[in-house]
Measured scan of single mutants.
Amino acid sequence: TLFEALYDYEARTEDDLSFHKGEKFQILNSSEGDWWEVRSLTTGETGYIPSPYLA
């Protein structure tokens, strides 16, 4: 399933992933509550992002 970022986000820890509004992601793991592990389709990087920032 693909999701798109609604807002920009700046990583706060080394496990987080910074991203920009409009960036698209593949969800790798959504079992961690509000923090999902994703792969950016723009950069190929993986990390955790806050799920409320996605649509």
Rank of each mutant, 00 (worst) to 15 (best):
T1N: 11
T1M: 13
T1G: 09
T1R: 12
T1C: 14
T1S: 10
L2N: 04
L2H: 06
L2D: 04
L2R: 04
L2K: 03
L2W: 12
L2E: 06
L2S: 05
L2F: 13
F3S: 01
F3V: 06
F3H: 04
F3K: 01
F3Y: 12
F3Q: 02
F3E: 01
E4M: 11
E4K: 04
E4Y: 15
E4C: 13
E4Q: 09
E4S: 04
A5N: 01
A5D: 15
L6R: 07
L6S: 06
L6D: 07
L6H: 05
L6E: 13
L6W: 11
L6T: 14
Y7F: 10
Y7M: 07
Y7G: 04
Y7A: 07
Y7C: 13
D8Y: 04
D8S: 08
D8E: 07
D8P: 03
D8M: 03
D8K: 03
D8V: 04
Y9V: 02
Y9A: 01
Y9C: 07
Y9F: 06
Y9S: 02
Y9R: 03
E10L: 10
E10A: 08
E10Y: 09
E10V: 13
E10G: 03
E10P: 03
A11H: 04
A11I: 02
A11N: 03
A11P: 03
A11E: 01
A11R: 07
R12H: 09
R12F: 07
R12M: 11
R12V: 12
R12I: 13
R12Q: 13
R12A: 10
R12G: 07
T13P: 03
T13H: 13
T13V: 08
T13K: 11
T13M: 09
T13D: 08
E14L: 10
E14K: 11
E14H: 11
E14C: 11
E14N: 12
E14S: 12
E14A: 12
E14M: 09
E14Y: 09
D15L: 13
D15A: 12
D15E: 13
D15T: 13
D15Y: 15
D15F: 15
D15V: 12
D15S: 13
D15G: 14
D16N: 10
D16E: 15
D16T: 14
D16A: 15
D16S: 14
D16M: 14
D16Q: 15
D16H: 15
D16K: 13
D16P: 02
L17S: 03
L17M: 13
L17D: 00
L17C: 06
L17G: 15
L17F: 12
L17H: 02
L17T: 15
S18N: 06
S18Q: 03
S18M: 04
S18D: 02
S18F: 06
F19M: 09
F19C: 05
F19A: 06
F19V: 08
F19S: 02
F19L: 03
H20W: 07
H20P: 04
H20T: 11
H20N: 08
H20S: 10
H20Y: 11
K21G: 02
K21F: 12
K21A: 08
K21S: 05
K21H: 03
K21T: 10
G22W: 04
G22C: 05
G22S: 02
G22D: 02
G22H: 03
E23C: 06
E23Y: 04
E23V: 02
E23Q: 06
E23I: 02
K24H: 06
K24S: 04
K24E: 03
K24Q: 09
K24W: 15
K24F: 11
K24R: 10
K24Y: 11
F25D: 00
F25W: 02
F25A: 13
Q26M: 12
Q26Y: 13
Q26K: 05
Q26C: 09
Q26R: 06
Q26E: 14
Q26H: 08
Q26G: 01
Q26L: 13
I27K: 04
I27Y: 04
I27E: 10
I27S: 00
I27F: 08
I27D: 00
I27N: 00
L28G: 00
L28N: 01
L28R: 14
L28Y: 13
L28W: 01
L28F: 04
N29A: 10
N29M: 05
N29W: 07
N29T: 06
S30Q: 11
S30I: 11
S30N: 11
S30L: 08
S30P: 06
S30E: 07
S30C: 12
S30D: 12
S31K: 08
S31Y: 08
S31L: 09
S31N: 09
S31P: 07
S31Q: 09
E32C: 14
E32T: 11
E32I: 11
E32W: 10
E32Y: 12
E32N: 14
G33S: 10
G33D: 09
G33R: 11
G33Y: 09
G33V: 09
G33I: 08
G33F: 08
D34T: 09
D34K: 12
D34M: 12
W35T: 14
W35S: 05
W35A: 03
W35C: 09
W35D: 02
W35Y: 10
W36H: 00
W36R: 00
W36C: 03
W36T: 02
W36F: 04
W36I: 06
W36E: 01
W36Q: 00
W36S: 00
E37Y: 15
E37T: 12
E37G: 01
E37D: 00
E37F: 15
V38E: 00
V38P: 00
V38I: 02
V38Y: 02
V38K: 00
V38F: 15
R39C: 04
R39A: 03
R39S: 02
R39E: 05
R39D: 00
S40K: 10
S40D: 03
S40C: 05
L41Y: 04
L41G: 02
L41P: 02
L41S: 02
L41M: 11
L41V: 08
L41W: 06
T42E: 14
T42Q: 09
T42P: 00
T42V: 09
T42A: 12
T42G: 08
T43E: 01
T43G: 02
T43I: 02
T43R: 01
T43V: 00
T43L: 00
G44H: 04
G44Q: 05
G44K: 01
G44I: 15
G44Y: 04
G44T: 01
E45D: 07
E45A: 12
E45R: 14
E45L: 14
E45H: 10
T46P: 00
T46S: 06
T46L: 13
T46C: 07
T46R: 09
T46Y: 05
T46G: 01
T46H: 07
T46V: 13
G47Q: 02
G47I: 06
G47R: 04
G47D: 00
G47A: 03
G47M: 07
G47V: 03
G47S: 15
Y48F: 11
Y48I: 08
Y48W: 15
Y48M: 11
Y48T: 05
Y48P: 00
Y48Q: 05
I49A: 09
I49H: 00
I49F: 01
I49N: 01
I49V: 14
I49T: 01
I49C: 05
I49E: 00
P50T: 04
P50S: 05
P50F: 15
P50V: 03
P50A: 06
S51Q: 04
S51E: 02
S51Y: 09
S51W: 14
S51I: 06
S51L: 04
S51K: 09
P52Y: 15
P52H: 15
P52S: 15
P52Q: 15
Y53V: 06
L54K: 07
L54M: 08
L54Q: 07
L54E: 03
L54I: 09
L54A: 08
L54W: 09
L54S: 09
A55C: 13
A55D: 08
A55I: 12
A55W: 10
A55S: 13
A55R: 08
A55L: 10
A55Y: 09
A55F: 10
A55Q: 12
